[in-house]
């Protein structure tokens, strides 16, 4: 048996690597309350706000499914496709408190299992692997009741 691969985030600093309590890491403008994900760290992008005070925040882990689709064909690099290719589903999830939509692949469900408006929750899942590492991404999945 091959030794256990170590888990690494597919991108550093965008989410907490905690499988029990995954959170997206963004920022919130201290002046106007606009939330940024991916994090905006330098200047607020609200044209009516001159703030550069953008403390880190964790985003809501649940939201409503705005829309969804899938990919039936392997995309080009830099996506790392398994061989053979496995189709994947992408969800756009609306977060109520942040008033924004965040994309993510869907873990453990296909388009046939989804319906706009349903509640989705954040999870962590493998995006791709190489010989040493398993690269982990945030994904959405239908929320447990």
């Amino acid at each position: 048996m091959s030794p256990q691969k170590s888990k690494k985030p597919a991108i550093e600093g965008w989410f907490d690597m905690d499988e029990k309590a995954p959170r997206l890491v963004g920022t919130r403008c201290a002046e106007c309350s606009t939330v940024y994900f991916p994090a905006e760290k330098v200047f607020c992008r609200n044209p009516h706000c001159a703030s550069s005070d953008l403390p880190e925040v964790r985003l809501s882990t649940r939201g409503r499914l705005w829309s969804f689709t899938n990919n039936c064909y392997p995309p080009p690099p830099p996506y790392v496709s398994p061989d053979p290719f496995e189709p994947y589903t992408v969800a756009a999830v609306e977060l109520e408190a942040e008033k924004m939509v965040v994309l993510g692949q869907v873990a453990g469900a296909g388009v046939e299992d989804l319906e706009a408006g349903m509640e989705m929750e954040l999870t962590l899942d493998t995006l791709f692997e190489d010989d040493e590492n398993e690269y982990v991404m945030w994904k959405w999945r239908p929320a447990a009741a």
Binding site: R28, C32, T34, Y36, R45, W66
Partner: peptide, 14 residues
Amino acid sequence: IEMPNFSTDSAAGA
């Protein structure tokens, strides 16, 4: 949501 973004802008502050 718009290409090539991961998210929309937030409407929480504007």
